[in-house]
């Protein structure tokens, strides 16, 4: 149970890639040497195996996120049932599934927030649970349904997120200004987050996830209760982030949004991956929503609630 102490020595080569948004931050050639040096880390070769299985093992084609056999149960009930998933680098990846499908649990395990019962996760080749600090540097996380330090003002919160990442004050200041402007929060920068509306809270949490220019963004329900204008702005930010080589993983209920925004998608239900691939592969001609319902099931064919009709 006591593994994953961020082992500093074995991947020392990785520590000098802190806040580069460029995907070439880690020279591909350096990695195998590193994992060779990590003599005491049994899972690293496994990671390499998974990674080299990906077509063209060149640095930039290494998947941004690899999940293998990820499993989690709560009180004997399986929430996530040995999930495998490959998120290609530079993709805009959608994760869809009904309520309670295990999306949040999977994402929490993938980002180092929740320790899996079994299985492993690699972010750009770094094992998340064995080298937590290095892996977390590469990731920006917007969790769903957790509190924020809401007695801070919006500006203070994003500053805090930046400083916690070990960034220097000047850079933080600059980026906080840019982020608040990009997310339409300048006028409320000094308001306490506890007094924010749900949509503003989402946006300030997103700003906190972006501040260190991560290479992989993991966003759990990022558009929930965000107004349409802000949502469009956020989409633009994410699109340009992806086109510059970053990877975005979003979970969402809104199929339409995922179909329009994402290039890859995975359908999760009951803790299993039902389908995964490019959006076109998964929907195979139908709309994503129809395909989703077909995969997940649960639609009623009955007439239902006859008394509700007003005529």
């Amino acid at each position: 149970m006591s593994r994953g102490n961020g082992g500093t020595a074995s991947v020392a080569g990785m520590t000098d890639v802190p806040y580069s948004s460029s995907p070439s931050g880690v020279p591909g050639a350096a990695r195998p040497a590193d994992s060779g040096a990590a003599e005491s880390s049994p899972a690293a070769p496994g990671g390499a195996e998974n990674l080299s299985a990906a077509p063209g093992a060149a640095a930039d084609n290494r998947p941004a996120l690899v999940l293998r056999g990820l499993t989690k149960g709560f009180n004997g009930k399986v929430a996530v049932n040995s999930i495998d998933l490959d998120v290609p680098s530079g993709s805009f990846y959608g994760l869809v599934g009904p309520n309670g499908a295990g999306k949040t649990t999977s994402l929490s395990m993938a980002t180092g927030l929740l320790r899996p019962d079994a299985g492993s996760v690699w972010v750009h080749g770094i094992n998340v649970w064995e080298h937590q600090l290095q892996a977390k540097r590469l990731m920006g996380i917007l969790p769903d349904g957790v509190r924020l330090f809401d007695r801070l003002s919006g500006e203070q919160l994003v500053t805090y997120a930046g400083l916690l990442r070990g960034m220097d004050r000047e850079t933080v200041k600059e980026r906080v200004r840019d982020l608040l402007a990009a997310l339409d929060l300048v006028k409320d920068a000094g308001t306490l987050v506890v007094d924010y509306s749900a949509g503003m809270t989402k946006k300030i949490a997103l700003a906190s996830a972006l501040i260190h220019a991560p290479r992989v963004l993991v966003l759990d329900e990022p558009f929930e209760s965000v107004d349409p204008v802000s949502a469009a702005n956020i989409r633009d930010i994410l699109q340009s982030y992806v086109s510059s080589g970053g990877t975005v993983i979003v979970s969402s209920h809104v199929m339409d949004l995922v179909q329009r925004m994402c290039d890859h998608v995975a359908v999760i239900a009951g803790g299993n991956v039902l389908a995964a691939g490019t959006v076109d592969e998964v929907r195979s001609g139908a709309s994503l929503e129809d395909r989703f319902v077909q995969l997940v099931g649960g639609r009623h064919e009955t007439e239902g609630l006859a008394w509700l009709r007003s005529s």
């Binding site: 500006e155 203070q156 300048v186 000094g190 306490l192």
Partner: peptide, 28 residues
């Protein structure tokens, strides 16, 4: 009910402590 809107510029205790991880946690 919405509170009063305030623009930023006041980092409060974040200016009093050094801009390190320790300082940030202490300021918060």
């Amino acid at each position: 009910t919405a509170g009063v809107r305030r623009t930023g510029g006041k980092l409060g205790a974040f200016n009093l402590f050094p801009g390190t991880e320790v300082g940030a946690v202490a300021a918060r």
